[in-house]
Write a protein that binds this DNA or RNA. Structure first.
Lengths: 245, 245
DNA sequence: GCCAGTGCACTTGTATGCAAGTATGCTGAT
DNA sequence: ATCAGCATACTTGCATACAAGTGCACTGGC
């Protein structure tokens, strides 16, 4: 076989590369198509499937021990989300990280999160207990250097802000466009100092929310949202094949 | 206008062979799956497929003169977008208009459009020539009472605001969440007076943009975004079967 | 050595067959 | 008349077979 580098793990992690975990076929309480979709999304987000990697329906099917049908349905949804590109009769590739898409995701996220912050401040004192708890989880992840746990708690914290605003669905809208940005953050994640900064920013945002200080919130969220992006140039220099305009 | 034939006016009337788009089986430049998807999206948006209508893969397949496979892929993408709901081994239905989803779509749209407005004002005097042209098209649609043309020009105008902001992709993000709201507007659209109000509001927004009056833009866009929603209660009273919380 | 041409291997797109689950309506008994 | 039980038709999920197009490598000729 030629370049079978479709399932490289994280480019920076030296751990043994585990590809896609096979989806067990059998009595399905959940649909196989959904499992394949979830598996592919997480694989792309976690860069186990690197940008530009060529996918093959038949290859994925036998790798996941399913037929092509559910794989095709999952790929159709992924193509709809812009995570993969399908060229008929030619092939399917994992989409590259588009810097323009990343910048637009930043715009969407910053705008909506600031708006959610403002709405959350409008009522009386918002309940920040869940946010405090998530901050604790992040601190724990920082101490144990568990990047995956931090990543999950990070997601949950920003989602909680939308919950407090009363528009939890808006967070789903953000996440759709944010997938490009997530991959960027994955590249920079194994940096303990950067995680320290992010947690501190999170705490400041939570403090501002508790004080219903809208002006501070706007500034903090804006700066926080632009944090990941400012590293894009150096990351592109390090992984040029993963990026595009 | 390229208004295709409605293939399902109402779920109860299962008339014979309501001709679909002439989908020639076999030789196809565009993928059958995509054509089916586009057809279904427009049918749902234009309420030719009413909320709650039950769909059947086999029925759609023979109606469109294709096999179930492309229909299934289209439905999978539609389910991902929240336009249809698939219950395994039970059936597929067009999603109801969720008032909560509508309100969240309003939030997303208002937030992003205001942000785009602000960014578009940041530079020097923005080029509003395209917007003026779209306003003229809307006036023409108003005079000829061509609601479909007005709907299209309305879409284009709001999209142009995002173009001027430099974040055209954000408009795509809005449109995804806005589908619920579009159906609501379809219900209220055949009202000439309402169209008159909308056009006037559009003109005010364009004026504010040309004058780079951010404060006015915020107020105008906010009011404009809430315009469609304020009719939701009466619409729900009129079409109770189409709505849900 | 180089280039043109061709065949093959691989890709995705589509159609069809089969399996499993659910709702419905009919039938028979009480 | 009413209700329990069952057969049947209909639904979606999955696997497989076939079709069509593309790129590439190999081969033959120059």
């Amino acid at each position: 076989m030629s370049s079978r580098q479709a399932f490289i793990p994280h480019p920076a992690s030296a751990g043994p590369g585990q590809g896609l975990s096979p989806v067990v076929r059998g009595r399905a309480v959940t649909r196989t198509s959904d499992r394949v979709y979830d598996e592919l999304v997480s694989a792309i987000r976690e860069l186990r499937l690197v940008p530009g990697a060529s996918l093959s329906e038949t290859d994925l099917a036998e790798r996941l021990h399913v037929s092509r049908t559910p794989v095709r349905e999952a790929l159709a949804r992924l193509a709809d989300a812009g995570l993969v590109h399908v060229v008929p009769q030619v092939g399917t590739r994992v989409g590259l990280i588009g810097l323009r898409d990343v910048e637009e995701a930043r715009f969407v996220r910053e705008s909506l999160e600031i708006s959610a912050f403002e709405v959350a401040c409008e009522g009386s004192a918002p309940d920040v207990s869940t946010l405090r708890e998530l901050l604790e989880r992040q601190e724990h992840s920082y101490r144990t250097e568990d990047y995956n746990a931090f990543f999950a708690a990070d997601e949950a914290l920003h989602g909680e802000i939308f919950n407090l605003s009363g528009y939890p669905g808006a967070w789903q809208a953000v996440q759709r466009t944010k997938l490009q940005l997530d991959r960027l953050r994955r590249l920079v994640l194994p940096d303990l100092a950067a995680v320290r900064v992010l947690i501190d920013e999170h705490r400041s945002i939570v403090d501002a929310l508790e004080a219903t200080d809208i002006a501070a919130g706007r500034t903090l969220i804006s700066r926080h949202a632009r944090r990941a992006i400012e590293l894009a140039p150096s990351l592109r220099a390090r992984y040029p094949d993963y990026f595009t305009d």
